[in-house]
Design a protein around this nucleic acid. Structure first.
Lengths: 126, 126
DNA sequence: CTGGATCCAAAGAGATACTG
DNA sequence: CAGTATCTCTTTGGATCCAG
């Protein structure tokens, strides 16, 4: 299926991709998008392998980009939660699609670096 | 909108995200997905800022993952073209959605690092 | 509890030169 | 034309310690 003249030369895909893809970024967005507002610690719990520093960095970038909203209650101890902004919710459909593909590929036995078992390697078949 | 129990703790999102997101990877997929089979040089032309090494690396990884198919004609000079595999085409909808978001945000004046002009910074407004 | 600051190791990206 | 090989430089990510 063709999308007339939709190639990325001078199209706005690249800056947006830099903002929403990348290690952990998409996972954070998926969690916020599917689970609703989450506290810092809750996000940590959902992603056991992320470090606090990286999570902080990603959330700051996403906030600067107007994609997530940070809300802090000035209590002690502090309570900070994050949620998608109005604009950030534009990503919901894309994230859903990505999630569906992930589920499908997982069910088909896809593994990173080895592809799909039923179709081992196109070039190895010749 | 909630997606019951769809958080990423022990869901297959992460490996798939590592395979299809990342610098240049998504852009390559979008080009192949929207333009059809493309030769190595044509991909270079669509992404003026990528280097041959990085493009080669990404294409190899995508091929190993069963997402793109590499076809080489044993002529001189060689002619190699790349296209989405059957499985790779699963990503089409997600890429379309991402492209639409990119177009929308661009039209709204979104800029990386500054967010949306109409909504400068949620915290700066207080 | 939610980070900020710092240091360090590892991965990634670019430039250049070379090949079938 | 379509890469490979090598080198360097930058960027990232993880660990640790500290603080409001």
């Amino acid at each position: 299926m063709k999308v007339k003249g939709a190639s990325c030369i001078s199209c706005p895909m690249d800056p947006v991709l830099k903002a929403v893809t990348g290690r952990w970024t998409t996972t954070i967005l998926w969690n916020l998008s599917s689970e609703g507002p989450l506290r810092f610690g809750a996000l940590m719990g959902l992603m056991p392998e992320i470090s606090a520093k990286v999570l902080t960095d990603r959330l700051k970038m996403l906030e600067r980009n107007g994609i997530v909203l940070r809300t802090q209650k000035p209590t002690i101890p502090p309570e900070v939660s994050y949620e998608m902004t109005e604009h950030g919710r534009d990503l919901h459909q894309a994230l859903r699609s990505l999630h569906e593909v992930a589920l499908k590929w997982d069910a088909e036995g896809w593994k990173p670096g080895e592809g799909f078992p039923e179709d081992p390697l196109p070039r190895a078949a010749e």
